[in-house]
Design a protein around this nucleic acid. Structure first.
Lengths: 157, 157
DNA sequence: GGCTTTTGGATGACATGTCAACCGTCAGCT
DNA sequence: AGCTGACGGTTGACATGTCATCCAAAAGCC
């Protein structure tokens, strides 16, 4: 008898290991980034999406799509980040509902300082812990699982 | 040139895929569990740790160790779960500081109803999306990464 | 032009988590 | 016994996220 339910022992073990790992990893990386740079992981996501945009400016809904955040979450977080001087919100001329979100100089500085720190953490805790094959496996597995999650399914067919 | 930093393109892609996947997966499973059973994923962790304990009772610090929660988080959450009638907190006779946390009948009922739902979601979204080999890989990879995270390092040597 | 629906965002209420104290008890040591 | 430090837990302030709701501007449609 392998357990109480639908999953067998191996499957349950895989799930537990995966869950623990992903939580621990995110926590560790978040905490480290926070300590070293004062940016949270969500801050980092926002700033790096903006920094990757050619102009350093994105419509709010584009930014939200890029980092896969609900609009409400984005709205709250933009308000906080604006208050901290990391981004700026500008009303959109061409669309009366719209909002541009742009990187302030302070925001650009922050992401430029944070990027190496964060990447170094990812390297150390994930990349270096695995062989190149394993890392490739992980990427493949992740993409496969992701593709199977309803909310990430291709819009149509 | 593969990017701006420390990670090359493949590594960065692996990280992004992994991160998106783990967030999406957890979100989806959480949301589904919540809708079907009224339990959050954290509720589920607590209840299932208690249900797995032979007596349905654990010292708070044991429970915390089991599910890897900080004591503060546990304390807050136990208060909320007690208010909802899912667990009960009992002062410990043998240790004046201590606390027993026990499953109430309602809590046991809740976890018994929730377990199949949750396991089914895990199966559907993770297990079924992968081959058996990939699932085994994922488990191995997870354990390896987990072992390399400082906060999870073996206490000594 | 009017009407309905969709879209882009904001908001308030609330659940959850973290951090930094804090407090009483216990254990080890002299 | 008396000190000291570790342990088990609580608390309050605060950051973060979610949900449901609301709003105004856009788009479709007749």
């Amino acid at each position: 008898m392998t357990g109480t339910g639908i999953l067998n022992q191996d499957q349950a073990r895989a799930w537990r290991a995966f869950q623990r790992m992903s939580v621990s990893l995110a926590t560790q990386i978040h905490r480290n980034l926070m300590m070293e740079t004062g940016l949270s992981l969500p801050d980092y996501e926002v700033l790096s999406a903006l920094a990757e945009a050619p102009t350093g400016v994105l419509r709010a809904f584009e930014l939200g799509a890029e980092i896969q955040w609900e609009k409400s979450r984005l709205s709250h977080h933009m308000k906080r980040m604006e208050a901290r001087g990391l981004v700026e919100r500008v009303v959109c001329e061409s669309d009366g509902r719209g909002l541009w979100v742009s990187l302030t100089p302070a925001g650009r500085l922050a992401i430029e300082k944070a990027a190496p720190v964060h990447q170094e953490d990812v390297r150390q805790l994930m990349v270096d812990a695995l062989t190149a094959d394993q890392l490739a496996s992980l990427a493949e597995i992740s993409e496969k699982v992701l593709a199977g999650i309803p909310s990430n399914q291709d819009p149509c067919d």
